[in-house]
């Protein structure tokens, strides 16, 4: 599935034109990116949480040469799937809550 397929779903199920659907889908992901860029987390109930985490610098190793290098401090994005999404993938009984 790509953005084009999501746009197609909006067009079919919600009835917006393809052009409108495309603009809105683009705007949804742009808004999410702007929010995460600010370091703010996004919680989508029933889907999952996108969380920005601060990582301290650490010593890593080039696996090929064994050479030690410092990996700088950084911010990374992690996704924590909701229980609802995890259940949906496993056809569990507890899919609703």
């Amino acid at each position: 599935m790509t953005k084009a397929d999501i746009i197609e779903q909006i067009y079919e199920k919600v009835g917006f034109s393809k052009k409108e659907s495309a603009e809105i889908v683009e705007l949804v992901f742009d808004t999410m990116k702007e929010t995460l860029e600010k370091g703010e987390k996004i919680k989508i109930s029933g889907f999952g949480n996108f969380v920005v985490r601060q990582k301290r610098p650490r010593i890593g190793r080039n696996p090929q040469t064994g050479e030690e290098i410092e990996i700088s401090a950084r911010r990374v994005l992690t996704f924590r799937p909701s229980q609802v999404l995890k259940s949906a993938l496993n056809k569990d009984e507890i899919a609703e809550f």
Partner: peptide
């Protein structure tokens, strides 16, 4: 629209499909 986006993504994953959103 927002609900449709996340529902269609969930459905896609449920079918074992991969989702790629550029950027």
């Amino acid at each position: 629209i927002v609900n449709t986006i996340f529902e269609s993504m969930t459905e896609s994953l449920r079918q074992g499909d991969r989702i790629e959103i550029r950027g």
